[in-house]
Design a protein around this nucleic acid. Sequence first.
DNA 1: GTGAATAATTTGTCAAGACATACTTACTTA
DNA 2: TAAGTAAGTATGTCTTGACAAATTATTCAC
Lengths: 247, 247
Amino acid sequence: MTVTRLDIDLDRSSPVPLYFQLAERIAEAIQNGELPSGTRLDNEVQLADQLGLSRPTVRQAIQYLVDKGLLVRKRGVGTQVVHGQVKRAVELTSLYDDLRRAGQQPETRVLSIDTVPAEEDVAGVLGVAPGTPVLRLERIRYASGEPLALLQNWLPAGVASLTAEALQARGLYELLRSAGVRMRVANQRIGARTATPAEARLLEERRGCPLLTMVRTTYDDQGRAVEHGSHVYRASHYALEVTLVER
Amino acid sequence: MTVTRLDIDLDRSSPVPLYFQLAERIAEAIQNGELPSGTRLDNEVQLADQLGLSRPTVRQAIQYLVDKGLLVRKRGVGTQVVHGQVKRAVELTSLYDDLRRAGQQPETRVLSIDTVPAEEDVAGVLGVAPGTPVLRLERIRYASGEPLALLQNWLPAGVASLTAEALQARGLYELLRSAGVRMRVANQRIGARTATPAEARLLEERRGCPLLTMVRTTYDDQGRAVEHGSHVYRASHYALEVTLVER
DNA sequence: GTGAATAATTTGTCAAGACATACTTACTTA
DNA sequence: TAAGTAAGTATGTCTTGACAAATTATTCAC
């Protein structure tokens, strides 16, 4: 088990916390091969000494990376780099963000954007009375010029001012964040079913083709529902990829 | 904004760390309504004083619950209980665990369990040479007496000794854990497609019915692949529910 | 009465230090 | 030579203390 010495510069005048700078530097070293899989880091006490940091600060940096699945720690043994198998962490992101990150050029066509009275099921999940006006969005998402998904979303009135133009240029979550909405928790249900004729037509697929479905309700940091979405994806063109990390 | 006083007993002779005892007590109070949604906790300094703990210990307990999505903190303001919308955290669990937790009685029928030469794609993900002997499992999972999913799994030789009897009584992950395998990271791909005639027959569905698919490769804490699975679920009977929490 | 500045409040970061626990290695004994 | 014990190693937990940064409330000046 080899221990690799690492060259780490910390900028003490930077507003970026020291523990975070250290975590990023270690992550970078893992990413670029300076710290290959299986490598053992110097022990915490040594690292703290070398870096001129307190041990709890070093621990905080390491814990951050342990939580991300990049490092593993064992009492009495030390801290080691995990195999670089973490591909995509679980995150609260929208399809638009996902596609952009994957290098695909997402495009959006807004079919409709209106205020409608909330039906019983939507009212229930949004925490409003049935019949309360809510904003309903209906869109098609394209990737590489092909239709990929049909997106229906409902938002309580007043959460954010959304226009078709904005929705075409940016993802919904990005717009909500810009509007100061602090999304925190989302309950998500993933399933599958066959496409209705209308859906098949919009998605340019044959009737009865398999769809991956996702129903999601998102809450802000006060626990208020800020968005409910029902999305269907062409299973022939899209699959959900995610990495689970055991704490 | 009301602050609720909480009765908390800590057992200092217990081997359970103090921060964890505190975290559990707070979580319990949130669960049973003593700490309703929106409640503000006493500030960290006060809590530490009242409980006879150091502030970093209190912080560690709170951070644990923040990571779980139960609490939210804001500098200059305080710590507050998030709305109780967290339903099911993202975890590294097997379908067996999930069904049992959901109160459904999972049953397993082992179709086959053999050592076979690894095909190119399986060899690739398991990190062995093509043709290397690997253990292949083929099972049907039932819930409430109905077929729910077809499960194919491949494990490198020597990871664990598995028998049909054991697989019928317990979930695969449970058996791996009992064998000392420390699963840490899993890459997962969720999609949908239509059932082949053979699949439809085994699942007691009509031909071409929609299936929810999940392909997953699981790695241990040393980064070694310990299992690769390809599972298909009756979309009419199963959907994947999960809660995403933004850090 | 309104706006800007200041003070109070609370979390976020960091340090130094000590002891406990789990794991590994080396040494001793039969 | 094998098994048991002791020592060494490294993370886990906890304490005390101090300062920084963000948010909210209060005060002061116009």
